[in-house]
Amino acid sequence: MSKRTHTRRGTTRPIRLLGDPVLRTECDPVRTFDAALERLVDDMFVTMYEEDGAGLAANQVGVGLQVFVYDCEDDKGRRHIGHVVNPRLVAADGGTLVEPEGCLSVPGLRFETPRHAHAVVEGMDVKGRPARVEGTGYFARCLQHECGHLGGGVYLDVLSGEARREAMRAIRDLRG
């Protein structure tokens, strides 16, 4: 288990893998802010830590709701831990960084992935209060990655050229 911790309890849920239709389905907005939503967020943190991830979207554990959790550092080494319900990526700018990126739903594979150096996400917390998260560097990458999941995408979708060809070959080889 990862050394990172979340203060609440939760239960590990199975990660859905590439090919599962839930990953390609746009998630529904959360309309009810209750104990079930809090349990989902707790379970997502426990699952993310168990799998040693930096972020996790609800559809990656089979729940088609607009929720993600994160625990990662920005480009200045500051650690960010939290969640966003009904997130909207309202800014993605600051130049493009191309770095290796992976995904818990595509285990064992990492590809050079272009992402903006700065991102801003607005949404709510589990109580329905407004939330705004701003990140740079790796944290900006995480915010863009998780918002992409909730729209029915995976990070492979943003690849192009040789990186995309390499990714498709690697996935074909895995499927045998």
Rank of each mutant, 00 (worst) to 15 (best):
C142F: 02
S105I: 11
Y138G: 00
A92Q: 14
P100W: 00
A92I: 02
H118T: 12
G77E: 06
R88T: 12
V133M: 04
G148T: 06
T113S: 15
E112Y: 01
G82N: 12
H149D: 01
D125T: 09
V120R: 15
A119W: 03
N86P: 10
K76W: 00
E134C: 08
V85W: 02
D125S: 09
A131M: 08
H149W: 03
A140V: 13
A140K: 03
G95K: 09
H118M: 01
G82S: 09
H80K: 10
V126G: 00
R79D: 05
G128A: 11
G82P: 07
L109G: 02
D125Y: 07
L143Q: 05
D125W: 02
V85M: 04
E146Q: 11
V85S: 01
P107T: 09
C147T: 14
M124E: 15
H145W: 11
G95A: 09
P130C: 06
V90G: 03
L89E: 05
R115A: 08
K76Q: 15
R141N: 03
P130I: 09
T136Q: 12
H116W: 06
V126L: 03
V84D: 02
D93C: 01
A91F: 00
M124V: 07
H83W: 02
L89T: 02
P107V: 13
L143V: 11
G94C: 10
D75G: 11
G102K: 04
A119R: 06
R110S: 09
K127C: 04
D75T: 08
G148C: 05
Q144Y: 03
C103K: 01
G128C: 11
S105Q: 08
V121I: 04
R141F: 03
R79I: 13
V121F: 00
T113H: 03
H149Q: 13
G77W: 04
E134Y: 03
R115L: 07
H149G: 07
L143I: 10
D75P: 04
H145P: 09
G135H: 07
V85F: 02
L89M: 06
I81S: 06
V106N: 01
P130G: 06
H116Q: 15
H80L: 12
E101L: 09
V133Q: 06
A119V: 10
L97E: 13
